[in-house]
């Protein structure tokens, strides 16, 4: 018995909203980055599920997952670099307290 496609999509949706909640409510910038990674992973899951189950129509769907890997790696490298340089100016990673750009 194969697991229906809808079940994978539902798991993906739940994980995506866990990630969204993390981005919106946590103070720590590093945890916000982690939550963004969770959201990207949820997207990957949905893309792979659709790609594998509809591969008789078009089996190239998984290619977007590869591009998401690239974007995720770039995002986490630049994001951590920004967090680190902000931490050097003021020893905190709380997004509530990093407000030097605010006039």
């Amino acid at each position: 018995m194969a697991v229906p496609l809808g079940a994978f999509i539902a798991v993906s949706a739940v994980l995506f909203f866990i990630g969204t909640a993390g981005v919106l409510v946590r103070r720590n910038a590093v945890v916000i980055l982690m939550s963004v990674e969770l959201m990207l992973n949820a997207t990957n899951l949905a893309l792979v599920a659709f790609s594998r189950r509809y591969s008789s129509i078009d089996e190239r769907g998984s290619v977007f997952v590869v591009f998401i890997f690239v974007v995720a790696a770039a995002e986490v490298a630049v994001g951590l670099a920004i967090v680190l340089s902000a931490y050097r100016n003021k020893p905190t990673v709380d997004v509530d307290e990093i407000r030097q750009l605010k006039g």
Binding site: A2, P4, L5, G6, I9, R52, R53, Y54, S55
Partner: peptide, 13 residues
């Protein structure tokens, strides 16, 4: 929407 998703292609590749 996700839970009510019904697909025609249940068998994987």
């Amino acid at each position: 929407i996700a839970f009510s998703f019904r697909d025609s292609a249940t068998v994987g590749a």
